[in-house]
Structures are given as structure tokens and as C-alpha cells.
Design a protein around this nucleic acid. Structure first.
Length: 577
RNA sequence: CGGGGUCUAGUUCAUCGGUAGAACGCUCGCUUUGGGAGCGAGAAGUACAGGGUUCAAUUCCCUGGACCCCGACCA
């Protein structure tokens, strides 16, 4: 590619709206441009990187027997209704109608489509395991797009779907996918951690995120000291420390409490530790049930865990009006003690206690009346929750669930994920069966697996760059060699540069040739650093018959012959220079 | 979904009641070639949209839109 013809050129100014390094550099170097919030043009340079990532994924997927195909972008809405996902997805579905008023959703993930396809065929156990995948644009009407390519509303994703005859067989598939994903990201130059996570709107029981550790990432997770435990904050567990279990249970006492409504106000008034206070958080779920989550005062409620405990999929905080008029309690003074006797007749209230309440005695907190508190509340004696479960949010420093030591909090970018789906879809969708050895229909055991290509690309730029620009790993770089021609007004230099350009291409090496005549060397070097191609090769009056080669990210230059350059580029095993 | 902010040349920003300016970029000419060179000339704008106030609005007010940032719950 001739740089003089490349669309577009680099720019010096940093875009006003970009806050992330990857966004700034990809923008300045001309890899991407924004269309509207969360929708990007992928420009020729960005496209080349994305295609390299795509190729790596395809190679690794095909190696394990994956078969590439493609589904329509518009999914019949009726399909999503079959699995109740028109209401339960975590992202806003985008809907569209055709001229016959037929309703479609723009695909944001494609479980139903693949199941619908597979059930059109009479498959038997002999056809399984089956692994189908596609690269397609996904649409997700995110509440808030942000961070350049990191959270967008439209993006290229590889999604794969596996079909197995049993859970045992599936575990083999799942492990294979886990290894394959690690390999894919490794080849793209990314170090990933495999983080146990919540399945959310996809369904199923367990899943793992592939996370690139980064301060700008939105995934928060915890690891134990030897990294053997690695879990997303949504599901991270820990062992709560025991508090005053040796204390005698004292008698329940109601006292006057003229205080504010925060936890701190309670601590100050009673001069008791925060952990001894009961934190009461009132939610309303999608069915309109009121959910009172109670937990030790120094812990926070984890809504994801709470959702699982009550088998619901959506929570919102109760309003002050609801607390007063429906529950007949008082904001800031809610208590599990006697609350069920107060509520309106038509109200369903579920009390969920965190297990941490077993670590404390003689707790204090509100009395369901303004400026009245209760002292010495004891679980079992004074109040009986409907459900006792782990609904606590882990925090840094808490004891890891295996007791190995304190948890460390980390942040990262989720570039891929693998999900166990089990029978979640095959049981809900009619005819999602295979025929077993006895000729009987059985639901297949499923999994699904996703990688965001744009996010992967941005993650590489985010973690692999310096002040001057991006440092692409050779495996995903838009070009392998950035040939910089200086002194091109001289005929002999120009001829030599063009000769080298052609010969490198003949060797199958991708070359970006800066053939501009009127541009100063400094400007050309700055552009080369910004774009970040792994090998910079200079030809000028000074170089003669040798080539001046500098690796992006290294300060040293070396002089090589053309043949040794070709060998160097072709035989590289390493990814980061 | 709440709070804050922004919107003027391709880009980054000035101007702040009197019909618009710089830098970078772009085009042309001369000069220049090892870390974003110099001089000169030029093209480039419905000041987000609509309404209001005013003799006069890019500027003030209102409505809408787009975009950015923060929060997303502990009563």
C-alpha cells in the first residue's frame, strides 16, 4: 500500500471526546471514526487489524471442528418470545417491522437462531458434538456507549454455539473452547485471565470471561493470592470473619433514635460498630414483589446474587413512598423484626438474609418507625428470613473462599466469554432435539461462546502502546513493514525504495510504503510510530544497498540486507517487539 | 434512568448582542529532507435545529436534538 494513497491520513490533534488511550491513538492514526454514539466506521487500517484477528479466530475454531456459517441479522421476534427473552435480555433489543408488519429484532446474540436452524434438521447422536459459529454484526442498544471501541452499540462478534449429547460430553467441549480462547488471545498478543462470571441474560449456570487486565476495563473481579480463584464481583465469594458470636444474646429493646438515615448516623448515635448494625435494603422485582435484603452493616448487597436467591431477573430500589405506604415502615428505619405484620394486604414481601448475619449477635438497627431503633436483634429469635443465602458483595482484603488468603480486586476488559447453557434453550424451544441410540428424542446440551473483535482490537492498542503511538504485535498489525522513503527526489534512492517495496510484496510481506516526496523525515517517523507497524525500514541517501531497520517499541536501529530482513519478518515467532 | 457539561472551518479552539477569527490540516508556488521545516498565496462557515426577546442574536431566554462525563442501590 502506498501511504500517499492511504485513506485517511493521520492527524495531530487528539479528538475532544476521547478519554482512553486506545481511542485517541486509533482515532489519530486513522483506524476508526465515529458515526454516532457507539457506532464506528472501521477504516482501512482498522479493517486490516480486525481481519487479522478474524483470521486467527477462524483458524483456531476450525482446528477444533468448528464450522463457520452465517445467520440473518434480523431475527423473527417470535423466536425470542419462545424463550421469553423479549423481556429478560440485559441489553435493549432493537426492533424493526417489515412492510407486512412482521416484527423482527436486530440480533444482539443468536442462541435462538442457531437452535431454530438446527431443529430444522433431524440430527442424531452421530452428528454430535456440533459446533457452529459466525462472524456477524451485533446490535445492542447499550444505555451508555463509552470508551471508543470498548463499549459500543454495533460491533463485529464471533459467536459460536455447541450442541452435545450430555453434560459429560459438553464438559469436554467447554474445556476445549476454554483452551482455544486462551490460544486465540495469546496469538493476538493479549494476556487474558479466565474469570468465573454470572450468566445473566444468556441463561445457564456457569460461564467464564476472558479478561485483559486494565484500569480502564469495566469488569471487576477478585483473585486469591495464587490466582487459582478468579471470580467476577457479581459472583465472587468470600468467608466472612466471625464477630461477637461468644456474646450472650441480650433481650430485644426498642429505644428512641433521633438520627439521620445513613448507616453512619446509626453508628454515631449508638456508639456501636458498623458491623453490628443490620443493613436493610428494599427492592421490588419484576413481578412486583418486595424484596427485603438484610445484611451485616459493613457489607454491601450484591444484586446479582440476590436475583439468583429469589429466582428473579430484575430489581429496582423501592421508593420512599412505597416504603411508607405499602410496607408501612420508614426510610432509614427499616427492620426485619415484625415487618410482615405491618405490610398492606396485597403486598408480597420476601425477606432475604445474608449469611453474614450468622456472624454477629445482638445487632441493632431501625424499628420500622421514624426515630425508633431496636437493639439486640438476633437471627432466628427475633426475625426469621424467608431465604438465607450469600448475597454479599466481596471486597478487597476479604478472605478468599478457599481460605488461601485475602482477595485482591482487579479490573479488566472482557474480550470474550464462554457460557454453559445446558438445556436452557433446548428445553424451552420445541423440537430442539437429537435422536439418541434408542431412537428417542433428547434435548441437546448446549454452550455458547463469544468474542468481540473490535473490543479485542482496542484492547491490544490499550495495553500495547507508548507516547508516540500504538505498538502492534506482528500477528495483528495492519502491515508487517512500514517502508519509509527519504530523499525520494533523488532518482536512485527512489528506484531503490520502489524495488524493495516490490520485492517485499513478492515475498508475501505486507508493506506500507511512505512514498511522499514533500514530507519531512520527522513527519514520516512520527506517522510510522503512531500507526505502529512492527518493522520500520528506512531507505535514504545514507542507506545505500543496506536497509535501516528499527522495531517499533525499540530504540535501536540495525542495518540489514534485504534477504535478512525478509527472513527476520517471516520467521518471527514472537508477537510483541 | 438521574445529575453535570458541550455544540462556531475538516480538526482543536477563540469571539460573547453590531453579519466570524487563529492554529493545525487541505490546495497552489518557491524553498527545504534524519524526529512533526520556512515564506507567500488560496479555498474552506445556514455558528446543531426551531421558536422567543431585541432596531440588531453565533452571543441572552425557551423547546427539541446530538455528543461527552459522572452516578447508577445501602434508606
Amino acid at each position: 500500500m502506498l501511504y500517499s494513497k492511504l485513506f485517511p491520513k493521520t492527524i495531530k490533534q487528539t479528538p475532544q471526546d476521547a478519554s482512553l488511550v486506545s481511542h485517541k491513538l486509533l482515532y489519530r492514526a486513522g483506524f476508526i471514526r465515529e458515526s454516532t454514539a457507539g457506532r464506528y466506521y472501521m477504516l482501512p487500517l482498522g479493517m486490516r487489524v480486525q481481519q487479522k484477528i478474524q483470521k486467527i479466530i477462524k483458524e483456531e475454531m476450525d482446528k477444533i471442528g468448528g464450522q463457520e456459517m452465517i445467520t440473518p441479522v434480523l431475527h423473527p421476534k417470535a423466536l425470542w418470545a419462545e424463550t421469553n427473552r423479549t423481556t429478560s435480555v440485559g441489553f435493549e433489543l432493537m426492533s424493526i417491522k417489515d412492510r407486512n408488519e412482521m416484527e423482527f429484532v436486530l440480533g444482539g446474540t443468536a442462541e435462538e437462531m442457531f437452535v431454530d436452524l438446527v431443529r430444522k434438521f433431524q440430527i442424531s447422536y452421530k452428528d454430535l458434538p456440533l459446533n457452529l459459529y459466525q462472524f456477524s454484526t451485533k446490535f445492542r442498544d447499550e444505555l451508555r456507549a463509552r470508551g471508543g471501541l470498548l463499549r459500543v452499540r454495533e460491533f463485529l462478534m464471533k459467536d459460536a454455539y455447541s450442541f452435545d449429547i450430555s453434560e459429560e460430553e459438553f464438559r469436554v467441549t467447554y474445556e476445549l473452547m476454554r483452551q482455544t480462547y486462551s490460544k486465540i488471545f495469546e496469538r493476538a498478543g493479549l494476556k487474558t485471565l479466565v474469570v468465573a462470571s454470572d450468566n445473566g441474560y444468556i441463561g445457564g449456570e456457569y460461564c467464564h470471561e476472558f479478561v485483559v487486565e486494565s484500569e480502564v476495563g469495566e469488569s471487576r473481579f477478585f483473585v486469591n493470592p495464587d490466582n487459582s480463584y478468579c471470580a467476577h464481583e457479581d459472583i465472587a465469594e468470600f468467608i466472612p470473619d466471625k464477630k461477637n458470636l461468644d456474646e450472650q444474646e441480650k433481650s430485644l429493646q426498642e429505644v428512641e433514635a433521633v438520627r439521620g438515615t445513613t448507616m453512619e448516623d446509626g453508628v454515631k448515635l449508638h456508639r456501636l460498630p458498623l458491623w453490628q448494625q443490620i443493613k436493610d435494603v428494599l427492592f421490588v422485582d419484576e413481578k412486583g414483589r418486595f424484596i427485603l435484603a438484610i445484611i451485616r452493616g459493613d457489607f454491601d448487597v450484591n444484586e446479582i446474587k440476590l436475583l439468583h436467591a429469589i429466582k428473579a431477573y430484575q430489581l429496582r430500589p423501592a421508593t420512599e413512598e412505597e416504603i411508607r405506604n405499602k410496607i408501612h415502615s420508614e426510610p432509614g428505619f427499616i427492620s426485619p423484626v415484625g415487618i410482615k405484620e405491618l405490610i398492606e394486604k396485597d403486598v408480597e414481601l420476601v425477606i432475604v438474609a445474608d449469611e453474614s448475619l450468622h456472624t454477629v449477635k445482638n445487632a441493632y438497627g431501625g424499628a420500622n418507625k421514624k426515630h425508633r431503633d431496636l437493639l439486640n436483634m438476633n437471627l432466628g429469635r427475633d426475625y426469621k428470613p424467608d431465604i438465607t443465602s450469600d448475597i454479599a458483595m466481596a471486597k478487597e482484603g476479604f478472605l478468599a473462599p478457599d481460605g488461601s488468603g485475602p482477595l485482591t480486586a482487579k479490573k479488566g476488559i472482557e474480550v470474550g466469554n464462554i457460557f454453559q447453557l445446558g438445556f436452557h434453550y433446548s428445553s424451552k424451544m420445541r423440537g430442539a432435539n437429537f435422536v439418541d441410540k434408542n431412537g428417542k428424542p433428547q434435548p441437546y446440551y448446549m454452550g455458547c461462546y463469544g468474542i468481540g473483535l473490535g473490543r479485542t482490537l482496542a484492547s491490544v492498542a490499550e495495553v500495547s502502546c507508548d507516547d508516540q503511538g500504538i505498538i502492534w504485535p506482528l500477528s495483528v498489525a495492519p502491515f508487517q513493514v512500514h517502508l519509509v522513503g527519504l530523499d525520494l527526489k533523488g532518482e536512485s534512492v527512489k528506484r531503490e525504495a520502489e524495488r524493495v517495496y516490490k520485492l517485499l510484496q513478492v515475498e508475501g510481506i505486507e508493506v506500507l510504503f511512505d512514498d511522499r516526496i514533500d514530507v519531512s523525515p520527522g513527519a514520516k517517523f512520527a506517522d510510522a510510530d503512531l500507526i505502529g507497524v512492527p518493522f520500520r525500514v528506512v531507505i535514504s541517501n545514507k542507506t545505500g544497498k543496506t536497509l535501516e531497520v528499527k522495531k517499533r517499541g525499540s530504540k535501536q536501529t540495525e542495518f540489514l540486507t534485504l534477504s535478512s530482513l525478509i527472513e527476520t519478518v517471516k520467521n518471527r515467532e514472537w508477537l510483541i517487539l
